[in-house]
Amino acid sequence: MEGYSIWVAAALAVWAYIGIVLQLGPGLWWHEALVAGAVTGMIVGDLPLGLTIGATLTLMSLGLWTYGGATIPDFQTGAIIGTAIGALGGGMSAGLAVAIPTALLMTQMDVLGRAITTFFIHAADRYAEEGNERGLAWMHFLGQIPWGLTRAIPVFLAVWLGAGPIQSLIHSLPAWFTNGMTTTGRILPALGFALLLSQLPLRKYWPFLLVGFVLFAYLKMPVIGIAVVAVAVGFIVNMLQPRGQSNV
């Protein structure tokens, strides 16, 4: 049974902690599955796997957003644990099979982290009453700990203790499973696109989708070219709109 040393597990736990806290502020996108997966891939020595798993999870998450502090699947932790376990030999199907349930289960940890942090604002209230600004500042700094540890601890345990057993469990994946996972991985971006479209004014603006589709599907235009056309189309339509109705 092959697994990871405690040091790899610790390194990935630190990476998970940094990723989520720097997402809170200043808002670096290190928690994005693509970045989380790629860096994990480098740490465990399988960059291509990290890129594939990160990219697949990222495409599933299009249109997902923490509106008003809502909890969404934790694809950061999913990408880290999934890449680490897949790199032991199972590859993309094993990695995704671990990453997606992990991302869903981790929503519980997100709720826990957001709830525990409430303790610090109550402590800050007491420091404010005393006029103790240092105390208040410390409560603010320490507020990151529940956030970071609710990611770091699961990553540490899953990679250190879990990776070996899970890997031997899925060591000889049957062909139907590998094929099914590969196909599912390819069609999962449909969820991301559907989530995104469900938030756009489709009824009003659907012809714009057709323009992009026709450019790619029939005219074989690269997507960079489509983006340039999109800018032109946007501005042309904007010029054609009557000006009187807005205050600009």
Binding site: F193, L209, F216, I226, A230, G234
Partner: peptide, 15 residues
């Protein structure tokens, strides 16, 4: 509007 043109091209290219 710009986003929707791009998404229209992304769906077939990604999938």
């Amino acid at each position: 509007m710009m986003g929707m043109v791009v998404i229209g091209g992304f769906v077939p290219s990604i999938m």
